[in-house]
Amino acid sequence: MRRRIYWLLPDLASARRTMDDLLLARIAEPHIHFVAREDVDMSGLHAANVLQTSDVLRAAQLGLVIGGVVGTVAGLAVAIFFPIVGDSPQWGVAAVLAVLGGLFGAWAASMIGISAPSHRLERFQPAIEQGQILLMVDVPRSRVAEIEARLQALHPEAHLEGVEPNIPAFP
């Protein structure tokens, strides 16, 4: 189980030094994510991807649930009131429409969620717009205190912004 530690760094030079220190602490690069304004040159840093900076996963989950419910209701109505073969309800149609509704809902909602900024990063948006760089580092639960102490000792210019107890499985 990993925990996500948030740090705000004042500039690119500090971010690059922090990246090097995390690599020396044996934190793998895929677990280090930086977020900055769009006009900032992030070369040499592992920039956060769309899964970490948008609400695509949250939106897809919500769309799956809503689409599945709507698909189930529509499927039940079709199965009971409009049977395809004979006069008995066609329960298979209800199941198919429930699955298709869930898939369509997840797809449609993810298209909306990909353009929405992550609700987890909203509190950092003003600092990012001012030119600071957000560091998100995912570390094993047993190393959180060690990594926090290391970064505080090596980077007094950085600000610890907290630890997220449950990071998403995919981003």
Results as ranks from 00 to 15, higher is better:
residue 170 F to G: 03
residue 120 R to P: 00
residue 46 H to L: 00
residue 30 P to E: 06
residue 6 Y to I: 00
residue 148 E to M: 09
residue 146 E to K: 13
residue 80 I to Q: 07
residue 71 G to M: 08
residue 26 R to G: 02
residue 69 V to Q: 06
residue 108 A to L: 14
residue 111 M to G: 10
residue 49 N to G: 15
residue 107 W to T: 14
residue 58 R to A: 09
residue 88 S to R: 13
residue 142 S to Y: 05
residue 38 E to N: 15
residue 10 P to N: 11
residue 18 T to F: 03
residue 170 F to C: 11
residue 154 L to Y: 08
residue 27 I to A: 05
residue 56 V to M: 10
residue 146 E to A: 15
residue 154 L to A: 15
residue 80 I to H: 10
residue 56 V to C: 07
residue 98 A to Y: 03
residue 67 G to L: 10
residue 161 E to P: 01
residue 59 A to V: 03
residue 112 I to R: 13
residue 141 R to C: 06
residue 27 I to T: 12
residue 2 R to Y: 07
residue 134 L to W: 04
residue 106 A to Q: 08
residue 141 R to P: 00
residue 100 L to A: 15
residue 11 D to Q: 11
residue 157 E to R: 08
residue 94 A to E: 10
residue 34 F to R: 02
residue 55 D to Y: 05
residue 76 L to S: 05
residue 7 W to N: 04
residue 34 F to T: 02
residue 171 P to L: 00
residue 46 H to T: 04
residue 158 A to W: 08
residue 10 P to M: 10
residue 161 E to H: 12
residue 29 E to G: 00
residue 125 Q to K: 09
residue 44 G to A: 09
residue 114 I to P: 00
residue 27 I to F: 06
residue 84 I to H: 04
residue 14 S to Y: 02
residue 17 R to P: 07
residue 62 L to W: 06
residue 74 A to I: 14
residue 9 L to I: 06
residue 99 V to Q: 01
residue 147 I to W: 06
residue 57 L to K: 09
residue 122 E to H: 09
residue 57 L to A: 12
residue 153 A to D: 14
residue 145 A to N: 10
residue 56 V to D: 03
residue 139 V to W: 08
residue 97 L to H: 08
residue 123 R to E: 12
residue 53 T to R: 05
residue 94 A to H: 10
residue 129 E to M: 11
residue 54 S to R: 08
residue 157 E to W: 04
residue 26 R to Y: 08
residue 70 V to K: 00
residue 168 P to L: 12
residue 159 H to K: 12
residue 84 I to Y: 09
residue 20 D to Q: 12
residue 102 G to V: 11
residue 26 R to N: 13
residue 162 G to H: 07
residue 9 L to Y: 02
residue 56 V to A: 07
residue 12 L to Y: 02
residue 76 L to M: 11
residue 79 A to K: 12
residue 31 H to W: 12
residue 113 G to A: 06
residue 27 I to R: 06
residue 148 E to Y: 00
residue 6 Y to Q: 02
residue 62 L to H: 00
residue 137 V to T: 12
residue 11 D to E: 15
residue 27 I to W: 09
residue 79 A to F: 15
residue 48 A to V: 08
residue 64 L to R: 01
residue 98 A to N: 09
residue 64 L to G: 15
residue 33 H to I: 01
residue 124 F to N: 07
residue 156 P to A: 08
residue 114 I to M: 09
residue 48 A to H: 08
residue 73 V to C: 11
residue 77 A to N: 02
residue 11 D to W: 14
residue 22 L to H: 09
residue 78 V to S: 06
residue 102 G to Y: 12
residue 152 Q to S: 12
residue 57 L to V: 13
residue 18 T to H: 05
residue 37 R to P: 04
residue 134 L to M: 08
residue 159 H to M: 11
residue 144 V to H: 07
residue 99 V to E: 00
residue 67 G to T: 10
residue 18 T to A: 12
residue 16 R to D: 01
residue 67 G to Y: 11
residue 69 V to S: 02
residue 135 L to R: 06
residue 140 P to M: 03
residue 33 H to C: 05
residue 36 A to G: 08
residue 164 E to M: 15
residue 122 E to V: 05
residue 116 A to C: 03
residue 139 V to I: 12
residue 90 Q to S: 13
residue 13 A to E: 13
residue 88 S to V: 14
residue 34 F to N: 02
residue 60 A to K: 07
residue 119 H to N: 05
residue 56 V to F: 05
residue 68 G to I: 15
residue 2 R to P: 00
residue 128 I to S: 03
residue 5 I to P: 01
residue 123 R to C: 01
residue 63 G to I: 13
residue 149 A to M: 03
residue 11 D to I: 15
residue 145 A to E: 14
residue 21 D to S: 15
residue 45 L to P: 07
residue 119 H to P: 00
